[in-house]
Each structure stands twice: as structure tokens, then as C-alpha cells.
Design a protein around this nucleic acid. Structure first.
Lengths: 186, 186
DNA sequence: GTCTATATTCCGATAGAC
DNA sequence: GTCTATCGGAATATAGAC
């Protein structure tokens, strides 16, 4: 059974990805957990503390997920990245960066730094994946691997955002085209 | 000299693109304009009314801007689209859809409909531009023009968001790679 | 660790004078 | 069309009992 602290972080994570950082309140967490807002403040004195915990957990999940795949071929590794976005899409969520970046300038500095750190880690991993995959002939693309990785991340992020505005089918259309461009089949 | 109503909309537009819809308040508008919040409510009874006016103006600008270019070659037309995003990038802003889509589910329905309408218009225009441009040999890409248009819009939107999180250079790296992929030179 | 109770601040919105 | 004044509500956060 999950303890309260973990459940708070988990719910906050969901709320950020569904409604945005500035749009959710402690009440949105205390009500479903049937606790009072003071209990949340005990675990996380400020909303900034809570936000940072959410990003920390996301970073740990990303590191753990990619770590397990280190020995797999690169097309399987890239599929892992697409699958994490596909899962969010099915749940009607956007990714953490997609949710937090529009509000970035309104966020306290320690939170900004955590977000930038996470984005750098994702870019670095994706770059390595594409680079090695191209050398092995698993992918086909022009230009620097780091620039291509940026495009892939950019498309995945925006596919979740645009799915909300333009309809659910948009996600599949973007990811399909993306994989096709990389020569990574389907 | 701009009248008050136009200045309110213009400031709201800037605030949405810099801080997000839920993060800005009437005070952020009344202070710089040196008016009281009641004056804003006179012109726009609710925040929803103000938000809709912002989207209406954006739509009018888009229609006017693209209308003027109808006779130009398609690579020039596409450049117009990139230039509007480049302008926002220089001002440190994101685009309207990039700002509003994460909060989409928290927005009142009439506002959601306006946003979806704007996004559909932009997609339709971009699709036509790419389609005709490819027929003339100005662009080179695989797949449906509408899917490619989606990818272009997706990248432009995300390039502004990621520039905030990952640093300003990201915008140029994404747009450069995008144009290169389309065979649209620089 | 969770509670009750409350402080403080800010928000969108309205009434009525000018 | 803008003002003063205020309402009602919600948000983050804190103090102190249990």
C-alpha cells in the first residue's frame, strides 16, 4: 500500500499533466485522498516543493526505464520513448515539459532548473539513441543526431498538446510520420 | 492612438503568450494601462470574453496575413509562417495554441471552440501551401500534405516552448532542420 | 502525521456614483 | 466609460491541539 506522501506526488503529477501547474490547487489533492490541505503542507511545505518532487520522480522513472533498455537495439529503445508518450496520450495527459514550459517564466527558479535538467537528460539520451542507431543502419536521417533528437522530442511533446485542440487522431498521424521519416518502420 | 479596448486585448494577448491564461490577472492589465479592473469588466464582462477576443484578433491577423500572400510562390508563403514564429521567439513569447493547449481542459467551452477553430484554419492553410508547393517542385516530402503540415506546425509550436526550457538556440536548430527536410533551402 | 481553525492575499465580478 | 467600494470565493500557508 502506497503511503500518503507518494500518493500526493502521484496525484500532483497527474494534475500537472491534465490541468497545468497554476491551475491545480491543494484541494484537488486533499479531496480525493480524503485528507486536509494541512497534511499536504506537512509533507511539502510549499507548492514549489511539491512541484520539484514531481519532477524528481519523473527523472527517476526516466533513468530507470532507459537504464533497463541499455543492452537492447536502438529501435527498441526509441520505441520505449514513443510508448511513454502513447501511454500519456491514451490517458488524455500531456508530458511534463509540455505542461510546464508555457508557464516556465512564472515558476520559481529552483523549479525551472529541475525542468531544464530533465529536458537536458531526455535530449542527451535521445541523441545517443539516434546516433548509435544510425551507425547500425537502424535509422536513416540527415544532419546532426542532436538536432534530429530535438525534432523528435519536439514532435512528441506537441503531438500531445495538439491532440487536445485538434482531436485525438493527431497523435497517431504525427508519430507515424515521425517514425516513417526515421526509417524506423512502424 | 489606440483606444482602451484594443489596448486591453493587446496586453491580454501578450500576457497569455508570456505567462499563460490561468496565470495572468486583470491587475496585470489594469496596472500598466493605469485604469481600474472595473474598466476592463466594462469592455469584457468575464475573463472568457477577453480570451475569446484575443483569439478573434489572432484569427483576423492570420487571415489578413495569409490573404495578402495568396499570389506569392509557396516557399514565400511558408516563410511567412516561419517568420511569425520567429517574431514571437525574439520577443520571448510562445504561440497562442502552445500556451492554451496545456490548459485546454480547464477552459470554458466557448473558448475551447475558438481555439480549435483557429488551429483548424492554420492546419488547412499550411496543408494547401505544402501541397501546391510540392506540385511545383518547391518542396520535397513524403506522405500526405496534411500530415506534413501537422508536423511543421507541431515543430514550430514546440520550438518556442522548448526554447524556454532548453535555451534560446533550440528555436533555430529546429526550424533550420525543418526547412532542410522540406528541401526549402534556408 | 493529521487535524481544526485561521491568517493573508489575491482573484473575478458587481453596484452605483460621476 | 471610468471611477470607488465591496462582495464572495478560493488560493497558499501557518499555528497549535491531538
Amino acid at each position: 500500500m502506497q503511503d500518503t506522501k507518494e500518493r500526493i506526488v502521484s496525484l500532483a503529477d497527474q494534475l500537472i499533466k491534465s490541468r497545468g501547474y497554476n491551475a491545480f490547487s491543494y484541494k484537488d489533492i486533499s479531496d480525493p485522498l480524503e485528507i486536509k490541505n494541512a497534511a499536504i503542507h506537512y509533507h511539502f511545505p510549499t507548492k514549489t516543493d511539491l512541484g520539484m518532487a514531481v519532477i524528481d520522480v519523473e527523472m527517476q522513472h526516466f533513468m530507470a526505464g532507459t537504464g533497463k533498455l541499455a543492452a537492447q537495439p536502438e529501435d527498441k529503445q526509441l520505441k520505449f520513448l514513443f510508448d511513454t508518450f502513447s501511454k500519456k496520450h491514451k490517458e488524455g495527459l500531456v508530458c511534463l515539459m509540455g505542461s510546464l514550459s508555457p508557464d516556465y517564466d512564472t515558476l520559481p527558479e529552483p523549479l525551472q532548473d529541475k525542468i531544464s535538467g530533465l529536458s537536458a537528460a531526455i535530449l542527451e539520451w535521445t541523441t545517443g539513441c539516434l546516433e548509435r542507431g544510425r551507425e547500425k543502419g537502424l535509422f536513416r536521417f540527415e544532419g546532426e543526431a542532436s538536432d534530429r533528437a530535438l525534432l523528435v522530442i519536439s514532435n512528441l511533446l506537441a503531438s500531445l498538446l495538439l491532440s487536445r485542440v485538434m482531436g485525438s487522431k493527431v497523435f497517431g498521424r504525427i508519430t507515424h510520420q515521425l517514425l516513417r521519416d526515421l526509417g524506423a518502420g512502424k
